[in-house]
């Protein structure tokens, strides 16, 4: 159906949702892990697994820091992750166009 396969890292329901939620943050912004978990309604373990896969691909950046004495984990979409998400969204939109509009190569 398509020439280039969709990015396998994002082409999974859970990770697509993670990246879509993170894409609403401004560039240079990070969100606290529990808040992201709350927005996505995922369990901590679950979210960690998907974040690790996204981190391995260089799509998200995880920062562990402290606020006072409490450890805080912050999550951000990297520039590469944002590009990948935009590319994925564009590919999906292209697939939804009627075939006669698509260029034949």
């Amino acid at each position: 159906m398509t020439d280039a396969p969709l990015d396998p890292v994002i082409h999974a329901q859970a990770r697509l949702r993670v990246v879509a939620a993170l894409s609403t943050l401004g560039a240079g912004d990070q969100i606290a892990f529990p808040r992201l978990q709350d927005v996505l309604s995922m369990t901590p373990g679950n979210l960690s697994v998907h974040l690790r896969k996204l981190e391995d691909a260089g799509y998200v950046e995880i920062t562990k820091t402290h606020r006072g004495r409490t450890p805080v984990t912050l999550v951000a979409l990297t520039h590469r992750g944002r590009m990948a998400f935009e590319e994925y969204t564009a590919s999906v939109r292209a697939l939804l166009q009627p075939p006669d509009i698509k260029e034949k190569t």
Binding site: L6, N46, V92, L96
Partner: peptide, 14 residues
Amino acid sequence: IDNDQPPGDPAEAL
């Protein structure tokens, strides 16, 4: 929620 499966089709992904 844990679903590692790809979305069913492009419309669902969007």
